[in-house]
């Protein structure tokens, strides 16, 4: 294939030639989501130092405070904790919580930045990328961040000796999936906000915080009155936490329930992804 068209060399000294538009379009159709992910990662690289500090510092601080400090006050032999130390009991939960926290940040403010504050999405939108690819690229980049952060977190858990099963590493995947199950519906919501009236602060206060408190993070959900237990049942954090415990120390629960955790988390993530796609397409194509 030859491209006989004289191309737009501005200075033209270097003899550079871009490939023809047909190639751009074909590549973008195929790899566009990754091209956009590359951009998001490049931006993240700008604050990679704080990402790493956060990823390392947070687990160490939490595991120490909760698992070592608080554990001295908690009856370790308690069967409610699955027969393991309190540290081993909360470690997988903390891992999941950290991923959810990161997802809550990454799927709110940057989305508003894309559509409204700095209108970052409108640049790539004029390129061969599609709105779905822009959304997918953002998700891919955040997923990578969640995987990295969870891996570091898990390494800390392992160093504290808080993962007793050989399957503990699967908690990295569980935490990432939980982050997406929580984050993608939130991303769809973020993409629908046209007027910034401090909605994110409300989301944090009235959705994220209650979910944390009633998701079996610090004590088993069964310790709560039935009247509030449902909060845990619909909370991706609870499902992720329980799933994490199964892998981390062989927490016993019916196999069906384990399957249900995975299905519930996957369903939320898929639902969030579908809604996000639709929002991005509608909003950017306006």
């Amino acid at each position: 294939m030859t491209d006989a068209a004289p191309r737009t060399g501005v200075a033209g000294r270097t003899g550079l030639r871009a490939h023809p538009p047909e190639v751009s379009a074909a590549r973008a159709r195929r790899w566009g989501a990754f091209y956009y992910a590359e951009q998001v990662l490049r931006v993240m690289k700008g604050y990679s130092w704080s990402i790493v500090m956060y990823s390392v510092g947070q687990p160490v601080a939490y595991l120490f405070a909760m698992g070592v400090g608080l554990a001295t006050l908690v009856d370790t032999g308690n069967a409610a904790f699955g027969g393991v130390s309190y540290l081993a009991f909360i470690a997988p939960a903390l891992l999941v919580s950290a991923a959810v926290m990161t997802a809550a940040n990454e799927f709110t403010f940057p989305i508003m930045d894309g559509f409204k504050w700095r209108r970052i999405y409108y640049g790539p939108h004029a390129s061969p990328l599609t709105p779905q690819q822009i959304a997918a690229g953002q998700i891919i980049a955040v997923t990578l961040r969640l995987l990295l952060q969870s891996a570091i977190y898990f390494a800390a858990v392992a160093l504290f000796g808080a993962s007793t099963s050989g399957w503990g590493w699967a908690g990295i995947l569980v935490a990432t999936l939980t982050g997406l199950a929580f984050g993608l519906p939130l991303m769809a919501y973020s993409a629908s906000i046209t007027e910034d009236k401090g909605q994110f602060a409300l989301v944090m206060r009235f959705i994220v915080m209650p979910l944390f408190l009633f998701s079996g993070t610090f004590f088993p959900l069964d310790n709560l009155p039935v009247a509030v237990r449902w909060v845990g049942w619909i909370s991706p954090i609870w499902h992720g936490t329980e799933l994490g415990r199964v892998f981390s120390f062989g927490y016993r629960e019916p196999l069906l329930l384990t399957v249900l955790h995975v299905a519930f988390l996957a369903a939320l993530a898929v639902l969030g992804w579908v809604l996000t796609r639709r929002r991005f397409t509608l909003r950017l194509g306006q």
Binding site: T8, A18, H19, P21, E22, V23, S24, A25, A26, R27, A28, W31, G32, Y35, Y36, E38, Q39, R42, V43, G46, R118, R119, I120, Y122, G123, P124, A126, S127, P128, L129
Partner: peptide, 30 residues
């Protein structure tokens, strides 16, 4: 893919450096 676009409202990536803005944009065209 056929077009170069200068919108009325600049939509550069303000978090990136000047040269990186060009590189990143070029990547969108593969």
């Amino acid at each position: 893919a056929h077009l170069g676009v200068v919108p009325q409202q600049d939509n550069l990536d303000e978090e990136l450096r000047v040269r990186d803005n060009l590189l990143v944009y070029g990547r969108y065209f593969g």
